[in-house]
Design a binder for these strands. Structure first.
Lengths: 136, 136
DNA sequence: CTTAATGGTCTCAAAAAGAGACCAGCACTA
DNA sequence: TAGTGCTGGTCTCTTTTTGAGACCATTAAG
């Protein structure tokens, strides 16, 4: 056995959060991260962190999301406990989406990544352009 | 209103980074976040944050990734400037992948999210179970 | 000469995402 | 009273992404 493979017991072990001798595939951390991996999840979280929104408001706020994906992403976020969905019995029933405490807590962490992206997207774009140029 | 929320409100504007009335679709922050949205990106970043790895080592480390997705995800991470790829002219040529400075910087932010997931995956799983039970 | 390890690529099937039609309920309006 | 629009969705179809697995060239060991 390669000793370098044995030595991986530092950060990756934490990421694994393995239950005893479990494997990486069943890692609960991965499940959570996966839930945020959707194309729209982080964007909707950022929107709802700002203030609660109704379905149609979100659709207008994010013009390039399809109604289907908005419904589905909100449903998934609600399922994972980040988002609260409240139906108001108005004449055309309206639905308001807001962050739960868990959602706000999670967004606090996600926020670091968003901030990093704000500060460094130029570097990423440069890297991308340089790489593409080198391939050509 | 919570001052945190007020701060986040301005953050959404930054997240939008709308080019003077432009739309959310062309946001550079979204591009960066998208690059990390892949199923395997964060996992490979966590592995490489620990230490450099060779292709085959990564494959063994993450047993449920297909060779195709490993190649592609590493390629994408390299393209965005997070990962450095170095080929050694050994007998069968070996390839080592390591984080760049940009990659380490980005992982610093990603790490917050991973830590949050470590601490809160129980709450997420409970929410999920409760939601599924309510649907049934 | 066969087997194994290196780091890939190629093809094809399955899963996920996107576009857009459709729907039920109610209000306003002509 | 028949249209029109707004509410928040669902249903179907097409395109994109992902996954499983075969294949490849090189080199070394048995």
């Amino acid at each position: 056995m390669d000793s370098r493979i044995v030595n991986l017991r530092s950060k990756l072990d934490v990421y694994k959060a393995m239950t005893g001798g479990g494997n990486l595939a069943d890692c609960p951390v991965r499940e959570v991260i996966q839930g945020l991996n959707g194309k729209w999840s982080s964007l909707l979280m950022a929107a709802l962190a700002e203030q609660p929104y109704r379905f149609g408001e979100l659709r207008r706020l994010v013009p390039d999301i399809s109604q289907r994906m908005l419904t589905q992403t909100l449903h998934d976020l609600q399922r994972d406990g980040y988002v609260h969905r409240e139906v108001f019995p108005t004449k055309p029933p309206s639905v308001e989406y807001s962050l739960t405490d868990l959602g706000r807590s999670m967004f606090g962490a996600l926020h670091h990544l968003i901030q990093w992206a704000e500060l460094n997207h130029d570097a990423v774009r440069e890297a991308r352009a340089g790489f593409d140029a080198a391939q050509a």
